[in-house]
Design a protein around this nucleic acid. Structure first.
Ligand SMILES: NC(=O)c1ccc[n+]([C@@H]2O[C@H](COP(=O)([O-])OP(=O)(O)OC[C@H]3O[C@@H](n4cnc5c(N)ncnc54)[C@H](O)[C@@H]3O)[C@@H](O)[C@H]2O)c1
Ligand SMILES: NC(=O)c1ccc[n+]([C@@H]2O[C@H](COP(=O)([O-])OP(=O)(O)OC[C@H]3O[C@@H](n4cnc5c(N)ncnc54)[C@H](O)[C@@H]3O)[C@@H](O)[C@H]2O)c1
Lengths: 219, 219
DNA sequence: CTCAGTTTGTTCCCACGTTCACAAACTCTT
DNA sequence: AAGAGTTTGTGAACGTGGGAACAAACTGAG
């Protein structure tokens, strides 16, 4: 199946290619060149071809790529052909937005439970799911075979929540709390830090203002 | 001040160091070694020292770093010693959460306006600000000198919103819509794509399940 | 079949980022 | 004052990623 390990930078771009392919399919485009797909994905065509070459040879020289076929191959490589049950912990402002986000379920991700430590929230209906007590985490993880957990609690609670997730068997965590989590080897944590993103923009903005016309990060 | 350009990878970690320093100050720690700070920030101590060396020599050999002083220097380098007015466009599920997020205002970022194209939302009070019409964008940008815009609209509207932002004078955009934005040179776009993050986790999760015990991305 | 045109997959090279290892510079004890 | 102990800042080695360029492999016309 996978001949070699796929570079991390490539893995991070596969979801972008997938979105571009879906967008092409919506426009009834059946086939495309690396140049077209690269433009749609906002990358260099050489980079795109090299990325795809890590998955295998799914194109035809002189012709291009079959959109449907390539989409399936990328989906399979990422693991989207299977179902991924997800638990969200901390149903405050952000947790509510995440629970209502259709972009998760549209891929293979299925939110199976919303958990919160605040008992006064328990029972509230959000996006068709009842908020349940955080104590039920382990039972829910075992029942649904949950492998991915989302943390949307305040920073102060994040490490404790992560510890509980790990001990319940979760091995992949998406963390929205502005807090560096410490987890055992074999557990993946990805951090989404909005405040950091703004600060990075501010740094570049400051340079743009004070220095000679410099190029930006572009997009 | 800044002798050379700071590597992009370093810039992306400065906010993390800043958080770690704030956390140390909260615990009344006045001074720390690169080892301690690196642990708090979740990175290698060699990497931390090299990162900091790009800003200047703010430590003392044999002693370590003065927490308060280093925090100020990093803040100044990022540009947090000045005020950054921000506009949020698209006050739906996510926009509401962002408007209510205190993590923005706690740094130098100040939300000056919430805009939405849906007139039925106009006037609604969110986090102490009234939702205003998207048409007011240019006037608001000029009035407050806004340089940073946040897009939280559906993907279909994102490019049009970005175009309006750019023509109004905004040169830094934080985009939450799952859509590759096309902007002129000199405009920075940072994309926060939650769906991609989940897919990356899924890829690694899949590999963990099917292959021999491999190491994860760690944290 | 042959040849011109097209587009992929890959190789080569360079730039960037990470880590090691150590000299330089500081503190503290004697 | 000198030497032992610490810790920073940096040079050098190494690994990863990006981009140009091109050979390989396809299509289609004549
Ligand atoms: N709101 C945003 O737009 C935004 C943006 C970026 C980051 N964040 C971060 O996301 C996190 C959540 O933000 P928010 O605005 O939704 O906060 P919030 O206070 O509205 O919600 C936090 C929720 O977590 C629950 N909680 C607290 N401790 C818990 C525990 N130990 N176990 C389970 N649940 C627990 C609380 O009951 C609450 O419902 C914060 O860390 C914040 O810094 C939020
Ligand atoms: N909800 C989440 O947790 C989440 C997570 C990740 C990404 N996103 C993305 O963030 C974006 C917003 O998500 P949401 O759940 O808040 O959607 P939403 O539908 O709840 O809100 C979108 C808002 O944008 C407004 N809008 C539409 N077109 C506009 C325009 N041209 N100008 C100004 N405003 C306009 C709408 O009136 C609405 O209020 C989407 O692109 C979504 O994919 C959301």
């Amino acid at each position: 199946m996978s001949p070699t390990r796929i570079p991390e930078a490539t893995v991070a771009r596969l979801p972008v290619y997938l979105r571009a392919l879906n967008s092409l399919l919506d426009s009834d485009v059946r086939s495309c060149s690396s140049e077209e797909l690269a433009t749609a994905a906002g990358v260099n065509s050489a980079k795109l071809r090299k990325d795809l070459s890590h998955l295998g040879s799914y194109g035809t020289r002189g012709v291009g790529y079959d959109v449907e076929y390539l989409r399936y191959q990328i989906s399979r490589e990422i693991g989207l052909t299977q179902d991924w049950p997800v638990v969200i912990v901390g149903i405050g402002n952000l947790g509510h937005a995440l629970a209502n986000y259709s972009g998760f379920s549209s891929r293979g991700f299925r939110t199976v439970a919303l958990l919160d430590a605040d008992d006064s929230r328990t029972g509230e209906l959000v996006a068709g799911l009842k908020i349940r007590s955080f104590d039920e985490l382990t039972a829910i993880v075992h029942e649904h075979g949950v492998a991915i957990g989302v943390i949307a609690t305040p920073a102060a609670a994040a490490q404790a929540v992560a510890d509980q997730m790990v001990s319940a068997g979760i091995r992949s965590i998406l963390n929205f709390a502005p807090m560096v989590l410490s987890v055992p080897d074999g557990v993946d944590v990805r951090m989404v830090d909005l405040s950091s993103e703004l600060q990075i923009l501010a740094y570049h903005e400051q340079r743009k203002s004070t220095l000679q016309p410099d190029d930006g990060v572009v997009a």
